[in-house]
C-alpha cells in the first residue's frame, strides 16, 4: 500500500477553483455555499460519513470526560486475573475488588493482556487519536495558508536578489524532496518520544500541498474584479486578504484538511506499528492496534476492534472530504 501521504499528492485533483470559470466571475456568496451543501447532501455516502464523524466527535468528547474528568470508565485499572476476556464478558466479583470493576460489571469490548477494559481504552483513545489528527492538520494548515498566502499575495516583493514567491516555492520544493513517511520516522525516532512531537512532525511535513493551492487560489483571486475593486478603493491589504481572499480560498482548504486528518490518523497508526507511536499514559487507536497484533490468536478482539475502528473513521473522513470536493467543484457539478 502506498503511504497515506501519497494519496493526495499523487492525484492532483481535477478541481478548478470556484470563481475562476468565466460564468462565475462574481464574488461567491451565501448561495454558493448553500448550493454546495445541496450537492453534498445528494451524496449519500458522504452524508453517512458526516454522521459517523459527528458520532465520533461526541464519542471523543465523552471519552475525554468519562475517562479523565469523571472517571466512569477507568482505562488504567489493571486486573491481571481478568485478562483476555472476550467482549461482553461479566467481571468476576471474586478476583476483582469492587473499586476496579467496570461500569455495570461488564466489559463491553473485553479486556487486554493486563486485564484493562478495552472499551475504556478505546474511549480514551478516540480523543487522543482525533486530537493528533486535528492538531497536526491544524499546524499544516496554518503554515500552508500563511506561506501560500504570502507567496500568492506578496509574491513579487523582493528580498535581496530573490522574490518572496521564489523563496517560498523553493522551500516547498525542498520539503517535497524528502520521502514523507521516512522523514517523519527519522525525526520521531531521533527526538524524545512525546505526543506533541508526533503532532508537530506530522504537521510540519504536511503543509506543502496546502501552500501550493492557496498560492494558486490567491493568484487567481487577485485578478478578479471584486478584489481589484477592493484594492483600488484603497482598502488595506489586511482587509483585502482576510475579508475577500481567505474566505474564498477556504473551501478547498477544508477539503484537504478533512483528508489530512484521515492521513494523520493513518500515519500515527503506522508509527505505532513500528514502535514510535504515542506512549502511555495516552492510549490511541494506533497503539491499541499495534499492541493487540501480538495476541491475534489469543484475543482477536484486541486486533480487530481498533483496526476496524480506524478503517471506519478514516473512511468517513475520506468520503466526507471527497464529497466536499465534488460539492465545491463547479465543473463536476454541472453534470
Amino acid at each position: 500500500m502506498t503511504e497515506p501521504q501519497e494519496t493526495h499528492k499523487a492525484s492532483p485533483s481535477p478541481r478548478a477553483h470556484p470563481g475562476a470559470g468565466g460564468e462565475e466571475a462574481f464574488p461567491p456568496s451565501e448561495t454558493l455555499w448553500r448550493e454546495s451543501w445541496r450537492v453534498f447532501k445528494r451524496d449519500r455516502l458522504a452524508v453517512l460519513g458526516a454522521w459517523v464523524l459527528a458520532l465520533l466527535l461526541v464519542t471523543a468528547l465523552l471519552g475525554k470526560a468519562l475517562t479523565e474528568w469523571v472517571v466512569v470508565f477507568d482505562p488504567a485499572a489493571v486486573r491481571l486475573p481478568e485478562k483476555f476476556l472476550p467482549p461482553l464478558s461479566l467481571a468476576s466479583s471474586v478476583d476483582v475488588p469492587p473499586d476496579d470493576r467496570p461500569l455495570g460489571g461488564i466489559y463491553l469490548l473485553g479486556t487486554d493482556e493486563l486485564g484493562r477494559d478495552v472499551f475504556a481504552r478505546m474511549l480514551q483513545g478516540s480523543f487522543v487519536s482525533l486530537s493528533i489528527g486535528f492538531i497536526a492538520v491544524g499546524i499544516a494548515l496554518v503554515i500552508g495558508i500563511v506561506l501560500g498566502g504570502l507567496s500568492g499575495f506578496y509574491g513579487n516583493v523582493k528580498l535581496g536578489v530573490i522574490t518572496v514567491d521564489t523563496l517560498i516555492m523553493r522551500l516547498t520544493d525542498v520539503m517535497l524532496c524528502f520521502p514523507t513517511f521516512f522523514l517523519i520516522l527519522t525525526v520521531v525516532a531521533l527526538l524524545p518520544p512525546s505526543i506533541y512531537n508526533i503532532m508537530v512532525v506530522i504537521g510540519l511535513t504536511g503543509w506543502m500541498g496546502t501552500a501550493r493551492f492557496v498560492r494558486a487560489e490567491f493568484l487567481a483571486l487577485r485578478k478578479l474584479d471584486f478584489v481589484t475593486a477592493a484594492t483600488s478603493i484603497g482598502a488595506p491589504d489586511r482587509r483585502v486578504i482576510f475579508s475577500h481572499m481567505v474566505p474564498n480560498a477556504m473551501a478547498p482548504v477544508l477539503v484537504s484538511a478533512t483528508i489530512g486528518v484521515a492521513t494523520a490518523i493513518l500515519t500515527e497508526s503506522g508509527l505505532s506499528f513500528l514502535g514510535f507511536g504515542v506512549q502511555p499514559p495516552y492510549a490511541t487507536w494506533g497503539n491499541i492496534l499495534a499492541d493487540g497484533k501480538g495476541f491475534i490468536f489469543d484475543a482477536p478482539w484486541l486486533f480487530f476492534i481498533p483496526g476496524f475502528a480506524i478503517v471506519i473513521v478514516v473512511l468517513a473522513f475520506n468520503v466526507v472530504g471527497e464529497g466536499l470536493r465534488e460539492a465545491i467543484n463547479p465543473k463536476l457539478r454541472r453534470r
Binding site: 503511504e3 493513518l266 497508526s269 494506533g286 492496534l289 486486533f303
Partner: peptide, 14 residues
C-alpha cells in the same frame, strides 16, 4: 477504493 485507501497498511497485511 475508499476502503483500501483508509486501511492502515499493516492491518491489511496481517
Amino acid at each position: 477504493a475508499y476502503t483500501l485507501i483508509s486501511v492502515p497498511g499493516f492491518f491489511l497485511a496481517y
